[in-house]
Amino acid sequence: MSEASTLPPLGAAGRLLERIAHLAIAIAATALFGLVIVQGWQVFARYVINDSPSWTEPVTLLLLSTAMSLGAAAGVHTNRHFGFYLLHDHVRPAVRRGIDLLVPLVIAAIGAVIAWWGALLLLDGLHIKAAGAAMPQSINYLPLSIGGALMVVFALNRFALALRPRVEEEGH
């Protein structure tokens, strides 16, 4: 676990990224609240109106996929993903620099794979109906693909920041 990073002052592009990250979290939060509503409705429907709706399961999985994908993408922007930075603090500055450049590239590569294949999987099942709900079978790949693309953007931003000549001693 790491804390939110203290990034240098933002330019216009930085502010745009910041806004995108906020939007991603807002959508993830909405999906999370949606999960509560859908599951709550399921209990209500079963006990009060004695009818188990069949759409709740596929919709729940879509909301879960949304919360995960966009939350995870935003986590790239704020450097919130679990990891450990043991080596990082105990190596020469040149090596540290190399690591700072490599890590976002690995993240961007994985994000790209997720975005690309996610989009393909989405298109592949778009014409097939999901059981129980009026939506495509492959709809869960939509947020995943978007999340993957955002991971690429956020990771490349981190890469660009690592490239910049740095002012050390952030001091906190």
Binding site: R46, S52, S54, E57, P58, K129, A131, G132
Partner: peptide
């Protein structure tokens, strides 16, 4: 009766 069904529109 509340019956479990597999995820298939036809069976639902």
């Amino acid at each position: 009766l509340k019956l479990r069904v597999a995820s298939s529109d036809m069976f639902i």
